[in-house]
Amino acid sequence: MNILKLLADLSAVDPDSYERISGRRGVLASLGQTGRRAVAAAVPLAFGTVLQKAYGRRAATIVDAFSLALTLEYLESDFYTRALASTSLVFPGNTRTVFQAIAQHEQDHVTFLQKVLADSGVAVPAKPKFDFTGSKNNTRPALYADVFQNFGTFLKVAQLLEDTGVRAYKGQVETLATDNDLLEGALRIHAVEARHAAHIRGMRRTLLGANVRNWISTRDEVITTPGVTDAVYAGEEVARQGLIDLVNYFPTDTSQILTGTKEQVTISLGEAFDEPMTATTASNIASLFIYV
């Protein structure tokens, strides 16, 4: 086992891993002197335990990954179903047809995930109660009071939910790596969520004149609220991919292969890779629309 390589890989996928494993409050420190000696003596064996300790509290099992995914799919499915049923929401052009297709996909994803969980012998989580205004059933001020009356508000929330879905699935693919069938299912659902997000972004631009691209860009107009929904895109802009530093790789002013300055290249690098989101962040975003 190449520990350094493993650490490098870990830091590539989880920037916090170094701190979590070896930082002051990390696992290596918590092992104490004896533990550290044991690690040195039997690194491959001990390292697995260390990793388990460091990550064990996270949603690291396949069941957890699919339960999270099911919550998000319940959320999206219910969101579109209610939007299509709203008598005060006007869908311009052919957009109702598009959203009917999207709603069907989300229902299909719910069915797929429910089956996987049921086949695994796990109790399938029930659908939570949703309030898409974000008022938690009128117990706090609404975030999106006219979500099912105003097409612009509806599209904004749809974009936030779909982009969250893409990042949340991406955050779970490595957990699913050991099970080819589930991995393939998750990856393929993930690609559909990305298509949804891109079409919804396109609708905002072409129908409503919003400054937004089909891909996530720091050049997009900001539609998140600090401290409330900004987690949807937090960390999405990173330009550096693991150990590969393309920021300082591309020529700048006289570039023949990429347009623009180093600043613009950095923006393009952020756009060219969609970043994962942790299970905790995804759950927190979902909980904005869930009440008990």
Binding site: K170, L187, A198, R201, W215, Q241, A272, F273, D274
Partner: peptide, 17 residues
Amino acid sequence: LGQLSKIASVEARHAAF
């Protein structure tokens, strides 16, 4: 795997566009 998935969804966005 994680790295490829970061690119895959961007390609899906391109395709939708």
